[in-house]
Amino acid sequence: TKKDTKLYCICKTPYDESKFYIGCDRCQNWYHGRCVGILQSEAELIDEYVCPQCQST
């Protein structure tokens, strides 16, 4: 049987260590910077990140 692979981001793909991720400070989920429109250089300046799903609630 195929091992359950945890899926990340709004694009629902397995973790890829070569890509940049940003963690939501509300739901603790991880998102590709590219998918949520945040560059790694911008993320370093953000104190708290809230993902699109949490922003809409």
Rank of each mutant, 00 (worst) to 15 (best):
S18C: 05
G37W: 02
D47E: 15
R26W: 06
Q53Y: 06
Q40T: 09
R34Y: 10
T5Q: 12
T57A: 14
G23Q: 11
C51G: 02
C27M: 01
L45V: 13
Y49K: 03
I22Y: 03
Y49N: 04
T5N: 14
D25M: 12
K12M: 08
Q55L: 08
I46M: 12
Y49P: 03
P52A: 11
R26M: 07
K3M: 08
C24M: 00
H32I: 00
K6H: 12
T57N: 06
E48H: 11
N29V: 11
S18E: 15
G33D: 06
C54W: 02
D16C: 04
Y31A: 02
N29S: 12
C54K: 03
Q28P: 07
V50K: 10
Y49F: 11
K19M: 11
C9L: 01
I46Y: 05
C35D: 00
E42Q: 13
Y49W: 12
R34E: 13
Q53W: 06
F20S: 10
I46H: 10
K19C: 06
N29F: 05
L7C: 11
K19W: 02
T57E: 13
Y49E: 03
K6I: 11
G23E: 08
Y31D: 00
C27R: 01
L7M: 10
G23S: 11
K6D: 11
R26N: 15
T13L: 05
G23K: 09
E48M: 08
R26H: 15
C51K: 02
D25N: 13
D4N: 10
S18L: 03
F20L: 07
Q55S: 14
K19A: 11
G33M: 04
I10H: 11
N29T: 07
T13W: 03
E17T: 07
L7A: 13
Q40H: 13
Y15G: 03
C54H: 03
D4M: 10
D16Q: 08
C27H: 00
Y15C: 03
Y21I: 06
C9E: 00
Q53R: 11
W30C: 09
T5R: 08
D16V: 05
E44N: 10
C51P: 00
Y31M: 04
Q53V: 10
D47W: 05
T57V: 12
I10V: 07
Q40D: 09
L45G: 12
T57Q: 04
Q28C: 15
